Simulated scan of single mutants.
Amino acid sequence: MKTIFQYIKGDKTIWAIVAILAIFSFMPVYSASTNLEYVVGSGSSFGYLIKHVVLLIMGFAIIYGVHKVPYRFFSGGSVIMLPVIVFLLIYTLSQGTTIGGANASRWISIGGIGFQTSTLAGLVLMVYVARYLSKNKDNVIGFKESLWQLWLPVAVVLSLILPANFSTTAIIFTMILIITFIGGYPLKYLGIIIGAGIGALLIFVLAAKAFPDLMPNRVQTWENRITSFSDDEGKEAYQVEKAKIAIAMGETFGVGPGKSVQKNFLPQSTSDFIYAIIVEEYGLVGGFLIVSIYFILLFRIFVVIRKTTTIFGTLLVLGVGLPIIFQASINMAVATNLFPVTGQTLPLISSGGTSIWMTCFALGMILSVSASKEETEEDILDDNPLNILHETID
């Protein structure tokens, strides 16, 4: 055991949380995947479990590799990655494939594995925003200057995510607003940005209504989800109804591991609604335990922030850490009918390679910050992208 701890750095509690969530996820994914076996008509529950385990092992490898990288490299790396993710998002919109019935323009296939580019884009964008705010911490931020350097890249990326994935766009935009507020961006300018964002969304909705062939079913899908949430009708209402039945059947201690009934009726039982299956099988006790673990992760994120010596490190941890907690909260809120269906997975528990990998990448960044004790603000600001490439190659 001592040998293992010699190689892993950073907050040990976060490492433990990742391991607990990953190991706990085995049984719910294995149990819920029986639905996929019959609905999809291919594979087996054991096969889905093996795939999930492999994805988690790769996720741990990502965490280990990323946490070994000095976190100042992520600052310049975000500038390098911005044009890459713009290209990937454009490619995804034009060439995306359907994964498990999901919207066609959300996914691309890499080596036979579905990859959701918007998740990577959100991660890069949060690091880029943290970089901008830290570099201007001692400057008076001008609105016109920030429009070009900060909000133009944000607008381009979000506009490419929006047509296929409104919920992810909304989450990223909300997180960016929170980080910019904490990072000292002028409040009077934030009001203008929020107004511009709402205006852009309205223009998009009107354009989609006027030219339905360009973006088929997207706005209608949003309307259906909101209507289903308020009127208890439609496909989304059916899923939520089954999720509520599963939660009710779980009572205090659950029906037992692998004995869920509603997994046979929930189309997204291994991803979007896996929390309902957990509560059905492990009861209120199991559901409360999961909530508690994410709460502890949030607490440890703030512990890392408290020990961080640079503005960039603080904003980086907030920027990549809060979305994990936010996503988990939304997933559980959807399962308990507190929020409309969004398609957000439960981090490190739901099946799905992109979600697991990007969560692990974010956690690796947080661990990199927590492992660093000698970084100064000058080190972070000396992050010219060309220098980053040169140091990486060396």
Rank of each mutant, 00 (worst) to 15 (best):
S31K: 04
T117Y: 03
K2T: 06
M358Q: 11
I172N: 02
G286E: 07
A16D: 05
E374Q: 12
K244P: 00
I182R: 02
D11C: 08
V304I: 08
Y282V: 00
F5H: 08
L147N: 13
G111V: 08
S118F: 07
V219Y: 04
F229N: 04
E233K: 14
M27D: 09
S44D: 02
L82M: 15
E241D: 15
T92N: 03
M126Y: 11
N103L: 08
M215G: 00
N331C: 12
M126A: 15
L21E: 02
V320E: 03
S228A: 14
F143S: 09
I141P: 01
L346V: 09
I325W: 09
D213W: 06
L120Q: 07
I278G: 03
R300G: 02
I14Q: 01
F211L: 10
G353R: 03
S372V: 05
S45Q: 04
G10L: 04
D383V: 06
L202I: 15
I50T: 12
Q116I: 05
R106D: 03
L201A: 12
L386T: 13
A170M: 14
Y132D: 01
Q149H: 13
G112Y: 13
I324Y: 08
L318M: 14
F46T: 12
F295A: 15
A237H: 00
P340N: 12
N139G: 01
I4K: 05
E374H: 10
I311G: 02
Y91P: 03
V69Y: 00
K137N: 08
V39H: 14
D231V: 06
L363D: 04
T314Q: 12
L297K: 03
I178T: 05
F295D: 10
W357Y: 07
S355C: 08
L120M: 12
S75M: 09
T180K: 04
Y189P: 02
N224D: 13
L284I: 13
G250F: 03
V156I: 15
I57T: 15
Q262C: 01
I277T: 00
L284V: 09
M126V: 13
S329M: 14
F229R: 07
S355Y: 04
K263S: 04
P347D: 08
E378S: 12
T252V: 11
G195L: 10
L363T: 04
V320F: 05
I301L: 14
P340S: 10
S269N: 07
R131D: 02
M58H: 01
K188R: 15
S94G: 05
M215V: 11
D382R: 13
V53A: 13
L36H: 07
R306N: 14
L322Y: 00
I311P: 00
